[in-house]
Nucleic acid binder design. Structure first.
Lengths: 378, 378
DNA sequence: TTGTAAGCGTTATCAT
DNA sequence: ATGATAACGCTTACAA
């Protein structure tokens, strides 16, 4: 470590306080003190240098930047000018160490490329920036183990709170959060029964209602282009919603009419083909996420299936293209922005000691479009 | 600040070193020392507590976690066990302060929701995590002023390097980076003449070549569904590429065949309508970004225009849907992943003192699909 | 191999 | 309103 070669008795002693002392109270020629020689030994200018050049104590400089009202007009302007001239930028690490606050919030998302998460992150970012916080971002790639490691690292980095996705975490993570008493929220889920605050849609209910909507349209033969439920409690809850609604009416779903995949238009196409391969094919197809839905729709058209006359296709998450395709798609709209914004507000509120610890359910609205209609007579 | 109420002469003095000392060397019943009373006064356990409980010096604990080889087998396992039992997590701020390194890298993107940026961020994230760094993320919303503020804040937060998008920054930012000697890269651009390292495609060249490709197909009447060049040097460079190619062949573009917007399928539709409103409409439409392109394509179909027989439509950025629409779209493929990954590698390399300061051009490949063809005879 | 203690750049307490 | 200085929790130079 530079500048630590010799044990110094005291800081002042190490720096000849000769010419500078004279310059200190000089009025305008601040440029003079910018002379390299003045900041000898140290690589970066620090608050101490500002104080020295401005001829005040470090305490005063600290006050001047953190609560200017505590400092006299005169000193304040003098200090500001020195800061500008010296180009000083406060050191976040030192500040964090002294205050025990980092003004940083961490988030671990399964992926950053899915539209809904991207939107939530954007909103999160906006909101946090506005409130003076910074976002530390990590990615779990849908692996609980990795989520744990990342969350841990974020806590080491000093985040004051954590945003997670879903309610199912590695047990180590839950333990860790509990014993360290880390403030966090589970986003994109709503299930007050779980441990921790949650902010998001009730995934089960959303698909329960969507399925009911189709049942009410007379459909009885259903197909599923589902998203894998592996390490994905949201997908799991959605599937549960479908099954709950069907069970209520005593409708069974044929196993061959269920295909499970991950993500992507092309994958949606393939899964769709698999589902409709077994005649008679379903009159209603429910898709697990946005891009699977788009794929299913595109493939249905390529196959010459008339939608919604022969078959209804519905999806989850309302991305722009759903409304722009030749046959606009019925889907569930969740405001990811809202999830992100709410999460940010909640955490910042709690950190400021306000806001009670409550859960927040985001609306999941069914947007009915041309892709769904009454079940065909046959 | 807690625990700072009374001036303490020395730390040890403040803590009765009675019973504990005896426990220190006790073999298995480590649980005993977990007793709250042992960590009195302090809210969080610290390295000192670990050292005390393990009966070693703080230096040894530090070594044990940072370079285990420096510590004897015996102490190492003892320390590890104490760490686990105490649930200690090192304090990043303190470590950053002491080492003058934060293992953190900052990025400021115009937006997080565009597919290309999201992909780059994802890659960035992966790569950085792998190398032991964490990503601090910020968002400029395409505003140079905000980019400056965010970058500054990231530097305050102690990032060791910065990833920016584009080469045109606020002058304050350029100054700031220069005087603070901040390591950074301009991503998504390739222009070795600018200040700073750049990693990305040569936007001008890419569209120059795409335009040439269309010219070679016999097109002479061009239309533009352009992305606004406001605060967007990439869009500007792309436009320049188009104009360069056209100028070379003496082809002029009719002002009424140019429409400028931002982003989104719907916007693409509107702009497209505007462009084709002026008969005879262009035989080739070049679009400024992915979603504008999709919009143009969708609208052309809604209007009953035959593509590519009557009109060729080409875009920029190869997102999945381009290849999945009924008429797959010719476009320029830029590997955003590569941009992100390269940027991360470059910065980490430089921080480790390897890697020379060189620019890196990412390939921008023309993916010819069904949406482009020979100009119609008429 | 291990310990001692200075030092990282701030903030905050206490005294003036 | 301002100054002096301990403290924040770690790393590391130097001594043993």
């Amino acid at each position: 470590m530079k500048g630590r070669k010799q044990k110094q008795v005291g800081r002042k002693a190490a720096r000849p306080a000769n010419v500078r002392e004279a310059l200190v109270r000089a009025k305008p020629p601040l440029e003079l003190v910018l002379d390299k020689a003045d900041i000898e030994g140290r690589v970066n200018v620090g608050l101490r240098d500002v104080a020295r050049v401005a001829g005040v104590s470090t305490a005063t400089v600290s006050r001047a930047i953190n609560d200017p009202r505590l400092v006299s007009e005169e000193l304040r302007t003098r200090i500001d000018s020195v800061i500008r001239h010296l180009g000083w930028v406060p050191d976040g690490a030192a500040r964090a160490l002294a205050t025990r606050r980092s003004a940083t919030i961490g988030a671990v998302f399964p992926t950053l490329t899915h539209g809904d998460f991207a939107r939530a992150i954007q909103a999160l970012q906006d909101e946090l920036t506005q409130k003076g916080y910074t976002l530390l971002l990590a990615c779990s790639e849908y692996k609980p183990e990795q989520e744990y490691r990342q969350a841990r690292k974020l806590v080491e980095r000093g985040v004051e709170a954590l945003i997670l996705v879903g309610e199912a975490h590695a047990p180590e993570l839950t333990d860790f959060l509990l014993t360290r008493k880390v403030l966090y929220v589970n986003s994109f889920v709503y299930n007050p029964k779980t441990h921790g605050t949650c902010i998001g849609p009730d995934n089960r209910k959303a698909l329960y209602r969507l399925t009911k909507y189709l049942i009410d349209l007379g459909h009885t033969r259903f197909g599923l282009v589902a998203q894998s439920t592996l390490n994905n409690d949201r997908a799991q809850a959605r599937l549960q919603g479908v099954h709950d609604a069907l069970a209520e009416r005593g409708i069974a779903i044929q196993p061959s009419h269920v295909a499970e995949g991950y993500w992507g238009i092309n994958e949606g196409r393939q899964l769709f083909r698999r589902v409709v391969a077994n005649k008679p094919f379903p009159t209603a197809i429910i898709c697990g996420n946005a891009y699977l839905t788009v794929g299913a729709m595109l493939e249905s058209q390529a196959m010459g299936i008339r939608v919604p006359e022969q078959m209804s296709i519905v999806g989850y998450d309302d991305i722009e293209i759903m409304n722009e395709l030749p046959i606009p798609i019925t889907t569930v709209r969740v405001s990811s922005d809202e999830v992100g914004r709410r999460a940010a507000r909640f955490l910042v509120g709690r950190l400021d000691g306000q806001a009670p610890d409550m859960n927040f359910e985001c609306e999941a609205e069914i947007i009915a479009r041309a892709s769904s209609g009454p079940a065909p007579a046959g």
